[in-house]
């Protein structure tokens, strides 16, 4: 992209990281501000190095949860990068994204959304429509829209992101399961309960296949066990397999653990909603044991 952070700024950045990681913001902030002043004197305000320095200082504020201050600095950095690097530069897309994140952290989803959309347009133009970074941007956009209740758009963005992740990174990539979970939460809001249920089952089945290689009578994903227990409880033929074995199933299944745990709980909640209490308890027990 034609710009490289000069060595002295890298050193300064690393030093600032050290101070910030120790919580010594009273050192980090003045250090950044002095460097900014010096840079502006030597290079002028509209220089990519100044944008870099503004970015570094913005991170220091961000890490203190001072999102408004961080956004102010990033806005300035954005303006400089647009002027000096070009409006479609990847650094401009990244800055737009990060501004959107800062607005999102403050609950300003309506303001964040157009920034995120602009970042998406640039990424699609530069990287192509099916790049994993485009999927990341779609995911951020979906999250912002979901917090505004725009579920039709959310569904579209998550579906696109999912297609990209599956095609480019494969079905076992952690982003696939995370996006399916998010899409399922959107489906729930839309009343598409069956679609949500299917996604949760897909996640658990994929985790199962990754660990055990197949689905057959001897190796069933946990949700199949849960539904069988539900059926048996209705016919009063109790399955003697103790719950702890399902915790064992889960422990053996280390893929995407937090996501799989969330999925177990979400599908359990869905079962509960459907009155399938035995099935719900099976998954809830499994989720609890694996936490």
């Amino acid at each position: 992209g034609g710009y490289e952070i000069p060595a002295r700024l890298r050193t300064l950045h690393n030093l600032v990281i050290q101070y910030a990681s120790q919580g010594r913001y009273e050192v980090a902030v003045p250090l950044c501000k002095q460097a900014l002043e010096d840079l502006e004197k030597t290079s002028g305000h509209d220089h990519p190095d100044v944008a870099t320095m503004l970015n570094i200082l913005a991170l220091v504020y961000r890490d203190q949860n001072k999102y408004k201050e961080a956004a102010h600095l990033l806005n300035d950095a954005l303006s400089i990068r647009e002027k000096t690097l070009g409006k479609d530069h990847p650094a401009v897309a990244a800055t737009l994204n990060n501004l959107a994140v800062l607005y999102g952290k403050r609950g300003k989803y309506r303001e964040a959304e157009p920034l995120c959309k602009r970042a998406l347009e640039i990424r699609e133009k530069v990287l192509g429509k099916d790049h994993p970074d485009v999927a990341k941007q779609l995911n951020n956009l979906a999250l912002l829209c979901q917090n505004q209740g725009k579920y039709d758009e959310v569904e579209y963005y998550y579906c696109r992101a999912l297609e990209i992740y599956q095609a480019r990174l494969g079905p076992d990539d952690p982003n696939v399961a995370k996006t399916k979970n998010n899409l399922a939460s959107c489906y729930l809001k839309q009343g598409k309960f069956k679609a949500a249920e299917q996604l949760y089952k897909d996640i658990l089945t994929q985790a199962h296949v990754k660990e055990f290689g197949s689905v057959d009578d001897d190796h069933k994903p946990i949700w199949m066990h849960a539904e069988e227990r539900e059926e048996m409880s209705k016919t009063s033929h109790n399955d003697s397999t103790p719950y702890s074995e399902y915790g064992g199933w889960y422990k053996a299944c280390r893929v995407n653990s937090p996501t799989v745990n969330t999925t177990l709980r979400n599908l359990g909640a869905l079962y509960r909603r459907q009155g399938k209490l035995e099935a719900a308890e099976t998954l809830e027990e499994c989720a609890m044991r694996s936490r």
Partner: peptide, 20 residues
């Protein structure tokens, strides 16, 4: 509200402007 907060936490930062 909790779900909104969870989604806020999922927003992904882009570090590429400061990677080298």
């Amino acid at each position: 509200d909790q779900q909104n907060v969870n989604r806020q936490q999922q927003l992904e930062w882009d570090d590429s402007t400061l990677t080298y």
